[in-house]
C-alpha cells in the first residue's frame, strides 16, 4: 500500500468512489478523478486504487455513505491543508 498526501490545492477533492461494507466492493475504490480537482493536481492517485485509510482512520467495515462522509469531512476541515490517503492497487478485502 502507498501513503498519498493530497494538498487542498483546489476547491474540490475531485474523486468519485464506489464501494463500502456490505457491497460487492467492500472498501471504497476510486472510479473517477476529475481534472482540476485537488486529487488530480496531486498526481499520485489513480482510478482503480482502493482507499484503506483517510488521515489514519480505517475505512474497513464502513458502509459507503459513512466512508464518503469521512473523506468529505477530511477535505472540509480547516485543521489540515492536506488529506492523507493510504491506498492500494489491490482489492485486499476480497
Amino acid at each position: 500500500s502507498t501513503l498519498v498526501r493530497v494538498a487542498k490545492s483546489a476547491s474540490t477533492l475531485g474523486i468519485a468512489i464506489e464501494g463500502g461494507a456490505n457491497t460487492r466492493q467492500p472498501l471504497p475504490r476510486i472510479v473517477t478523478i476529475q481534472r482540476g480537482g485537488s486529487a488530480h493536481n496531486c498526481g499520485q492517485l489513480r482510478v482503480g486504487q482502493v482507499i484503506l485509510e483517510v488521515n489514519g482512520v480505517s475505512l474497513r467495515g464502513r458502509e459507503h455513505r459513512d466512508a464518503a462522509r469521512i473523506i468529505a469531512e477530511a477535505f472540509k476541515t480547516k485543521e489540515r491543508d492536506h488529506v492523507d490517503f493510504l491506498v492500494t492497487e489491490f482489492n485486499v478485502a476480497l
Partner: peptide, 16 residues
C-alpha cells in the same frame, strides 16, 4: 463463499 459474494449488492457512487 463465491456465491455469497455474488449476492452482495453493487455500491452507489459518490462524487467528492
Amino acid at each position: 463463499v463465491r456465491e455469497k459474494r455474488l449476492t452482495l449488492p453493487p455500491s452507489e457512487i459518490t462524487m467528492l
